[in-house]
Design a protein around this nucleic acid. Sequence first.
DNA 1: CTCACTGCA
DNA 2: TCCGTGCAGTGAG
Length: 635
Amino acid sequence: MEGANGGGDGDGGDRPWQSYHTVYTTAKAGMEGVDKEKVQKVVYEMSKGSKYFQNEERKEAFINQKVQNLRIQCAKLTEADLVHYRKVADRRIVELEASRDLSRIWLHVDMDAFYAAVETLSNPTLQGKPMAVGSMSMISTANYEARKFGVRAAMPGFIARKLCPELIFVPIDFKKYTYYSDLTRKVFRIYDPNFIAGSLDEAYLDITEVCKERNVNSEEVCSDINKPNGQYILPNDRMAVMTFVSSLPIRKIGGIGKVTEHILKGVFEINTCEQMLEKSSYLYAILSQPTAEFFCSVGLGLGQKDSPQVRFRKSISNERTFSATEDEVLLHKKLVELAEMLSVDMQKEGLCGRTLTLKLKTASFEVRTRAVTLQKYISSSEDILKHAKKLLKAELPISVRLIGLRVSQFNGDKCSAAPDPTQKTITNFITSGDVNRNCSSFPDVADLDFVSDAETNLSIDNRQTSQLDWRDPFVGNYLSDGDHQSCIVQKNGVEEVQTPSNDATSSHHSGFTEGSTSFQGQFEGINVMNESKLREGARLNSCCQETTMLWLNDYKCSLCGIELPPSFVEERLEHSDFHLAEKLQKEESRIHQPYVPSRSRNQKDGITRQSKSKKQKLSNKEGKYTPIDSFFVKK
DNA sequence: CTCACTGCA
DNA sequence: TCCGTGCAGTGAG
């Protein structure tokens, strides 16, 4: 093997900025015309010399060293070794191929700049202006106008501002995004009650049955569900998949990030998925078996194996960044706060765990974790604090900028909700909710059954809430939105569709020596196949039912008057989908009470949380998926 | 088990 | 002035 040429590896000579690898130079939607060189230069100039930067350099040097080591290992492989590993790899590839399953049709939905889109919706004056959701220290997402300047998610705000001085910053408001996300999920649930929610703005739907029911193929569905922009159809035949995958840059694959890409390129000269297969003997020779296997399945365009199913959380944690300090009193105070927050979160979900991990980030950005595993399961803030203090004390003369606490090793039976069959749907609802839930600062679906005492204490007076129903997703700034009627259908940029993919592969892979990842996302577009998802005749029926409700004289839409003869089956379905979405949204806003401008409302968070929980409870009372039909009862 | 580290949204 | 948070997961020791 020669000439590593790790793709853009700078030499650090006269163009030092080229050697500073950041995550935000990767091509993203809306960043096609960006002058990458210029952006990189600005980022470099803004970062250079900082503690953060120095730490990045340290890490990068370490990785480079690893690349060197692996290259040496490769070079040491004998001819016999290579013959052997060729066989090993080929055999596995055949097995993997045999496991390919093209029978399911998956729809992957990914909303464009979701947070930014929502913010624009509630403040239309943002329309057309470069805007980012986030703060000076971190940006969560940027709209397309901002992306033209190279501004993007995960970039610190002060750098973004340098790139785009007129950039408008909007503080992050999860409540708002959760609200809109829930709207979209109601629609997803119609098509696949068991859809997998990746995050607030992302979902995977198994639409195999819908297609069958409506007697359409994925292509038709795609254009059916989404008129305009951005869908991509990957046919479920092997050749199409292989072609798609072959030229795909490895970085597009879920689970392959900056470091893995660097190693794959630097050590194996792998740049595309196709090359994973070509180099598979080296992969098996040098890397762990699961890791090699993962890469091979990527090369074959196979998805992950196990259906994401009802996966219980394995840990719960919180962490906060602050200006670095070594003041022990201050650090202790932070620890107390974290312990209390964590305890509240745990009780909300009925969790008890026996491993406590303390995380510290030093003033120089070095991360350190320290853990204890106890005999007994804990969840109270006192217990957490007691052990956390010990862990911290052991590190003590130290200057830190972040403290975090994590509890894991849960008590399976008693604390975590038992999989009671009657609760199954709701459990699904919760778990499919967010794999990664965010800040504890806003309520999430998991609250509904566990409104704890602690939570009650937060609200000022929960009696009045039951009357008033102050739920309003937009506690935020900005105008209201008489307009949020129209958002959903057009806003959710359904992006793409479909495909096969299979089982095979052990769903995990690893990162080389240390790192790894989760391989949940796969490619954007290639998807998971999972065995049987239960069928939902009921769901489809409800669709059809309400369709007939809508058509006066079997001809005219009772809601908007549009005329569509019975023979226009697909058009009708689509039309009713439209009204469904619209209706859901109206319903939602109605329940959520008329919008009250924020200045006139003085309720505290606790109240909002209360009522939100209540609402969730109501709408799920039946234990079925959302009572879709109820939305079609004319009021 | 512990710890460092990757990756993802 | 200035680079986050919460989760899953791997693998070496």
